[in-house]
Amino acid sequence: MSLPDYGFYILCGTAVILLAAQAVTHPTQFFQVFIFGLTQGAIYALVALGYTMVYGIIELINFAHGDVFTLGAYIGTTLLGFFAITEGTFTAINLIALIIVFPVVMLIMGGINITIERVAYRPLRNAPRLAPLITAIGMSFFLEGVMFLWRGPATVHFPDILPTQSWYVAGVFFGVRDIFVVVVGAVLVSLLAVFINQTKLGKAMRATAQDRDAAQLMGIDINRTIAATFFIGALLAGAGGIIWGLYYNTIYYQLGFRSGLIAFTAAVFGGIGNIPGAAIGGLVIGLTAAFSDSYIGSKWTQVVIFGILIGVLVFRPTGLLGMRVPEK
């Protein structure tokens, strides 16, 4: 173990001890914040997976990914508008609407992301490394522009159609929506893990991330594999967008910018390119944000999150679970 490792463990240890102290002295508040952090973290995890998968396979920081997430929420609210949903309560129609809208939005976002990859990234695969980064920024502006043009600059309402039941357990308040967010997040991440580890396409994706040339020699269709990566990343981002909308009931066109950066931080935190890492990183960042909001003050949250980002990279550049980026 080297000095940076000690630094890393000392930092982590200090944080855990401080939090534990809070948990013991003010358990109610602690677990309340914990639940909030968990829900936020589940959403960040879904978005972070898209960043990490794309980075793992083509080493691109896909700045447009946060906007894909937001666009998912925008399309979601529009589609839900076609159903006779009832807000503030939970009806059978609400359930049907959700069951239909979730996959439809996910597929639409997948399609859009494939198109983005085809138009803006694929032609630049052998260009200087920064060229696709700039087109990613361009696509980010473009998507924000689409949402702005479509629904204007103000915040947009997202229907409140989840069950409203809630409970107090030992003074900690939590509702069905909290459970919903965490469960859907967990299910999607597990499905992804199964897909990556078990299917042929998943193996092709891992192989391509390891060594693109070698993968190509083994007969893997690189273009198709990369497109699939973007597709799956967008499925999760689209789902994340709807979940965000269902949970907060408010969305706006630049939402993806900040949450995208935070999700990206989560991906780095978990070890960029590392899929379980991104999921855990998302949870950790969500919890960090929640704890920082309530114990330090929300105006310091951004400093805390990005400070952690820098700290992780300095003390443990491979991230929490280790980087799976191939050595050149």
Binding site: L124, P128, P132, T135, M139, S140, F141, G145, V146, L149
Partner: peptide
């Protein structure tokens, strides 16, 4: 107003187009 709302799209579109045409 409509044109103004198109600002983002125009800017983003220009970035993408220029990079595709002249990646260097």
């Amino acid at each position: 107003e409509e044109t103004q709302r198109l600002n983002f799209i125009i800017y983003g579109g220009i970035l993408v187009a220029v990079m595709l045409l002249r990646p260097q």
